[in-house]
């Protein structure tokens, strides 16, 4: 099974040979060089950001009064709070737990939106630790908070994804995208292609994973910290 297929594995159920490793995950490759805010700004200019990702980043989406609107608002608020905690360098696991617990199992999908956001955020935080833009111990505390999320609060597939993320293992298509963000050697066209591929993963999952990753990028660029 190719790593671009995260949520589509069920479609392959009739062809067992293609379903070799559901939810293929891997570690991030080592950084080729330093990450700067300037390179992140340039990357944001060339990536593909689908409407759902934009909605989650802005907190505005769905029909007024709809469940979808509530999901987007809740998710946005919790992710912003997590980004602020990460950027403040807080190394206490308990500081991340309430927001992570509020996100797990939230929203549509076999891997619900909230879980995808957490995984995207974890991947990007690990990437930016390598670039010196996030305090390493803060990223570890955040990852540790994911490991402690109760399995009964979300779907089995999402719980597995969170457990992998807490160990530094991320869906390959997310890992490839995150590795390119802030990479001064990255080709803009390749980065765009990767974000298109990520966004095309599943119905929501790819866009939600991307939103988690980009929320932290926006936070770093804006110098956002928890009040």
């Amino acid at each position: 099974m190719r790593s671009t297929e995260i949520d589509t594995f069920l479609d392959d159920a009739m062809n067992p040979v293609r379903v070799l490793k559901p939810l293929p995950c891997r570690e991030l490759d080592p950084l080729p060089g330093p990450v700067s805010r300037a390179s992140l700004v340039l990357d944001l200019a060339c990536i593909f950001v689908p409407a759902r990702t934009r909605a989650l980043l802005s907190g505005e989406g769905g029909e007024p009064g709809s469940v979808e609107e509530t999901v987007v608002k809740w998710a946005h608020a919790r992710v912003r709070s997590l980004v602020g905690t990460l950027l403040s360098g807080d190394v206490r696991v308990v500081s991340y737990r309430p927001d992570a617990a509020a996100l797990t199992g939230l929203g549509p999908g076999l891997t619900p939106t909230g879980d995808d956001l957490l995984v995207g955020l974890a991947a990007m935080s690990q990437r930016l630790v390598g670039g010196g833009l996030i305090e390493a111990r803060a990223a570890v505390a955040f990852s540790t908070s994911l490991a402690g999320l109760p399995s009964a609060e979300t779907t089995a597939a999402a719980h597995r994804l969170l457990q992998n993320a807490s160990k530094g293992l991320f869906p390959s298509v997310l890992a490839s995208t995150v590795e390119m963000l802030g990479n001064p050697h990255a080709d803009p066209e390749s980065l765009r292609t990767l974000t298109v591929r990520l966004a095309a993963t599943g119905a929501h999952s790819g866009a939600d994973l991307l939103a988690g990753a980009l929320a932290l990028v926006h936070g770093v660029i804006d110098g956002e910290e928890k009040p």
């Binding site: 469940v67 797990t104 929203g107 999908g109 909230g114 979300t154």
Partner: peptide, 10 residues
């Protein structure tokens, strides 16, 4: 949606 605790509360 899947019947997760968060979705039920939502």
């Amino acid at each position: 949606m899947m019947g997760t605790g968060t979705n039920r509360r939502l």
